[in-house]
């Protein structure tokens, strides 16, 4: 059995605010999963249970919702979550080249993370900025009209920054290969 876990006071306050927005507690589930993810890095089983207990929901409801949405992480994610749009508009303007650059620079296939926990690489569906394609997103930041040269430069920058910061909260070295 793992150590019992609890939300910080700040997270509990956020959840209390979220609960005030809905007539039923389950309404707060998705935003609560986000704040839980912010605190623990990803939604490990103990976190799902904690969310279920906090919102007084069956664990099955929490799992069903968490499993449905790609942005709720069921596996650890690297410090820099690099998501390259590979949908039509970006594909037309060279997103395959960007993906190739990222794969080479990071030594990853889409869906994988680096063992040091610094990078996760994924393709993402249309980011809806097609007039500024090709696009990608790293954590919460959008990048537009990206060229292979700019991407190479950016990844090198993040690598330097990442070495100082280390892996993110909740990173498990042994789990780095699979990412959902």
């Amino acid at each position: 059995m793992s150590e019992p876990i609890a939300f910080s006071a700040a997270t509990n306050a956020k959840i209390a605010d979220l609960l005030g927005r809905y007539p039923r507690k389950q309404g707060a589930l998705i935003p609560t999963l986000y704040v839980a993810q912010d605190e623990f890095g990803w939604l490990k089983p103990e976190v799902m249970q904690l969310v279920a207990d906090t919102l007084e929901l069956p664990l099955a409801s929490v799992l069903a919702t968490a499993m449905f949405y790609t942005m709720l992480h069921k596996k650890p994610v690297g410090r820099f979550h690099v998501q390259i749009c590979t949908n039509v508009s970006c594909y037309l303007l060279g997103s395959d080249d960007l993906m190739a650059v990222a794969q080479q620079a990071l030594g990853l296939a889409p869906g994988e993370s680096t063992p040091d926990g610094l990078f996760t690489l994924e393709s993402v569906q249309c980011l809806c900025a097609c007039d500024r394609a090709p696009t990608l997103q790293i954590n919460k930041e959008d990048y537009f009209k990206v060229t292979p040269a700019k991407l190479k430069e950016l990844l090198a920058q993040l690598q330097t920054e990442g070495v100082k910061l280390g892996p993110p909260v909740g990173w498990l070295a042994e789990q780095h290969h699979a990412h959902a």
Binding site: R21, Y22, R24, Q26, G27, A28, L29, I30, P31, L33, Y34, S61, A64, T65, M67, F68, Y69, T70, M71, L72, Q125
Partner: peptide, 29 residues
């Protein structure tokens, strides 16, 4: 009137209005 920002979580189908409603209720879309 109270207005709340509700976040999606990476599911295109939630653009369909009844899936969106399910999602606000905290369910799979």
């Amino acid at each position: 009137l109270d207005v709340y920002m509700q976040t999606g979580a990476g599911a295109y189908i939630c653009g369909e209005e009844t899936a969106l409603i399910e999602s606000i209720e905290g369910k799979p879309g």
